[in-house]
Design a binder for these strands. Structure first.
Length: 380
DNA sequence: AACGCGGGGAA
DNA sequence: TTCCCAGCGTT
């Protein structure tokens, strides 16, 4: 065990079992009253909780709900997911982002069928060994679905716990996270019936996250309605705005990218499926490139020529779109373009596809937006 | 330890 | 604009 999480000497509050018991009770009582009615809470089987946890990674709950419902309808268990068609799976995931999550789930489902008789494994080490499942997700799935006493730590609980114990050190440091993991473990109910979800780890872990989402928010935390405000060290010190402390600052980078709209005079558009091992692998998109492949329009034209084989002419910019990918703030310059020569057959992996065909194929959100715009404007 | 990975919601 | 979101895997 690590030393006291409390950073204030002489006030090792987080080592105080009675203090922790008050916090625990405050969280559980509050959760019993205020838990949101989320679909995976209705029937929290390991499989359903697994799907919800993967979808919720770096994604807000409200965004996840409709995806979760569609996903469970189409893939009701691990066996169905293991048998899923890769392209259809990506289409189901389209818009959620972090597409590796879907590929990892697919691989994990196959492992579950192969090694665990199709049932999500209830041993922590087995769960942790599955692709896409780390320390947080393994603990979350097994505690929420099966009431096992495993700690969790993610965006919400980092904030809630660091405020509760008055942690002034930066949560970007590993030592801070170690402290918070320890606290998460110590906060788990000590005595509970395995079947008593309401007073067990299943509710405690969800209560802490729910409090972070609804009350203990990043800015302007609602301390006046917080069930554990009296126990909160950050509030006692008036440091709600300073905790959790961060040292890193997000730095964004402006970036220009280029896309080309090329039609074949039959209402079809030039597209390709992105090759494996790269960003947006497996998803369909219009010809598109950015640095270092395409640093400007002329460079993009060269890239197009190299990839398509034959001659191509960039006409005018018909649209610019702004969007964000991780740290990049991208301006996408969309050109109308025409093929003016070269072999009649397209080089791999380029194809002509109609908007109707593309409706059933996975595309990045940007690609989908561009396609919708093209359809709306009756380009051809 | 730092970075890459998508996209959306909110202030 | 900037930050944040039920993080994980790689380097």
């Amino acid at each position: 065990m690590s030393p006291s999480p409390a950073s204030t000497a002489g006030d090792p509050v987080s080592n105080d079992a009675r203090w922790r018991a008050r916090v625990r009770k405050g969280l559980l009582d509050w959760f019993a009253e205020h838990a949101r009615d989320l679909p995976w809470r209705r029937d929290p089987t390991p499989y359903r909780v697994w799907v919800s946890e993967i979808m919720c990674q770096q994604t807000q709950v409200a965004t996840v709900v409709p995806y979760f419902l569609r996903f469970l309808d189409r893939y009701p268990d691990a066996a169905a997911l293991a048998d899923a068609d890769e392209s259809e799976l990506m289409r189901m995931w389209e818009g959620l982002g972090y597409y590796r999550r879907a590929r990892s789930m697919h691989a994990a489902a196959k492992q579950i069928v192969e090694n665990h008789n199709g049932e999500f494994p209830l041993q922590y080490r087995d769960a942790l060994a599955l692709p896409g499942i780390g320390r947080y997700t393994a603990g979350a799935i097994l505690s929420i679905s099966s009431n096992l006493p495993l700690p969790i730590l993610e965006g919400n609980t980092i904030r809630v716990f660091s405020r509760l114990i008055g942690l002034r050190d930066s949560v970007d440091e590993k030592a801070s996270l170690d402290t918070l993991w320890d606290f998460s473990e110590q906060l788990l109910p000590r005595k509970f019936s395995p079947t008593d979800r309401a007073r067990g780890p299943a509710s405690l872990n969800q209560a802490a996250m729910e409090l972070g989402a609804l009350v203990c928010t990043p800015r302007d935390p609602k301390c006046l309605i917080c069930p554990v405000a009296k126990a909160c060290q950050a509030r006692a010190a008036g440091l709600q705005a300073e905790i959790p402390a961060k040292t890193q600052k997000m730095k964004y980078e402006a970036r220009s990218e280029y896309a080309a709209l090329v039609s074949d005079n039959q209402g079809r558009w030039l597209v390709r499926q992105i090759p494996p091992g790269t960003r947006f692998a497996g998803m369909w998109d219009f010809p598109k490139a950015g640095p270092p492949d395409a640093n400007d329009a002329e460079h993009f034209h060269q890239w197009l020529t190299n990839h398509l084989g034959g001659r191509i002419q960039l006409d005018e910019v018909v649209k610019t779109m702004k969007h964000a990918v991780t740290k990049y703030r991208i301006t996408l310059n969309v050109y109308r373009a025409t093929r003016t020569g070269g072999p009649k057959a397209l080089a791999e992996p380029w194809k002509f596809r109609t908007p109707d065909q593309l409706k059933h194929l996975p595309m990045s959100t940007t690609g989908r937006r561009l396609l919708n715009w093209v359809e709306k404007n009756q380009f051809s």
